[in-house]
Design a protein around this nucleic acid. Structure first.
Lengths: 202, 202
DNA sequence: GTGTTGACTGATCAAATGATCAGCAGTAGG
DNA sequence: CCTACTGCTGATCATTTGATCAGTCAACAC
């Protein structure tokens, strides 16, 4: 089952290359991944990769854009403005977590991308990704659900950061919990804790 | 001014290599960095790098361990068990932020390391790094300063995660704040917000 | 049939990689 | 003076890198 939405309906080899490249890039990053390894994982010859994408860097960029597009589409469907603020915030964080949890390779690819990527690309991307979320958070804040002692943009992005952290650092989290003998937490518990941090004190 | 504590008192070239390697590794990661580029930045010949460290990978490991050691030493001096819980938590987060803020190269190196590094290395490292912090957080929780509706380990590590996020994502934070016309925040404001999230409701 | 187009591959290229080796200079010990 | 050792370098190694090129093959148009 492919992690990425197919780029071309019938482009068999092409999609195979994209999926294989995603896996290799996610594991070793841009510089660590070799075109031959990608080609082998895709079951095609190495020149074919250049034939379809024009080069390793272009392939990298195609994958990155595909992930962003998938994410935007998913979130657009998950953010429901009709929901009451409380449920809405929870649903949003839950969707965010579910999306990446279902796409571990894309998640790791994005981690690499953040280190490699150029600054301006990063800024514009985050701008477009956070805008709707911030607006939603402000609404929840106005409704008295989210604490109002911090800017809505910060509340929104901190929620995202904590979910990101939850996804990224299971190892560290488990270690920290073990210090006091606590056991691991389920995803739903994590969402609950994060929402509670952001809630207005009742 | 070197970012790393000198490894050898008089090892002139050796320390130059370490500093140069830190810079190049931080910029491009392990696979993106070339030994020739490191040598050139250090003002020495490329074979000298092998002569002193035995290889690129060993050099990478030396730097990583040096950063961890510096961090541990710094935090040990910054965590003051005599402080009242509230001030102690604030001081701890402030120290954490100050340490990495003063060492942007080391910070970025560590980001790379987290992606490259082997899992077991990661686990043991985080284990040893978080243990004292968790213990401290539990004390602050018992004293009623930190909210008690989440495990102390989670409180400790979430505080760290938010500071980390603050350091790592200035770009995204600025973008999110701009959506509602808010301007940037000072470090001290960030610390304040983070502590407030973790505080017990009064 | 012929011609054309596009997907695809094996062979190969120039460049860059990390590592190695022989040797140079300086210095300390005898 | 000789030896030994250490810090250091230029030259060079084998390997791997991403990219290119010529050419095969099948599908399709006419």
């Amino acid at each position: 089952m492919p992690e990425l939405h197919p780029t071309f309906p019938q482009g068999d080899a092409r999609n195979a290359i994209v999926e294989a490249a995603l896996a290799v890039f996610a594991a070793k990053g841009f510089h660590g991944a070799g075109t031959r390894q990608i080609a082998q994982a895709a079951g095609v010859s190495q020149p074919l990769l250049n034939h379809h994408f024009g080069g390793k860097e272009a392939l990298w960029r195609v994958i990155g854009e595909q992930i962003t597009a998938d994410f935007m589409a998913f979130m657009a469907g998950a953010v429901d403005l009709a929901l009451p603020p409380g449920d809405g915030v929870t649903a949003m964080l839950r969707a965010y977590l579910a999306f990446w949890k279902a796409r571990p390779l894309s998640f790791r690819f994005n981690l690499w991308r953040r280190l490699d990527g150029l600054q301006d690309e990063r800024a514009s991307r985050s701008e477009e990704m956070t805008r709707p979320v911030v607006a939603f958070m402000q609404r929840a804040q106005d409704a008295g659900f989210i604490r109002n002692d911090l800017p809505p943009g910060l509340a929104a992005i901190m929620g995202g950061a904590l979910v990101q952290f939850w996804l990224d650092s299971q190892l560290e989290i488990r270690a920290a919990l073990a210090v006091t003998g606590d056991e691991g937490l389920a995803d739903e518990d994590a969402i609950g804790h994060i929402v509670r941090l952001l809630r207005a004190p009742s």
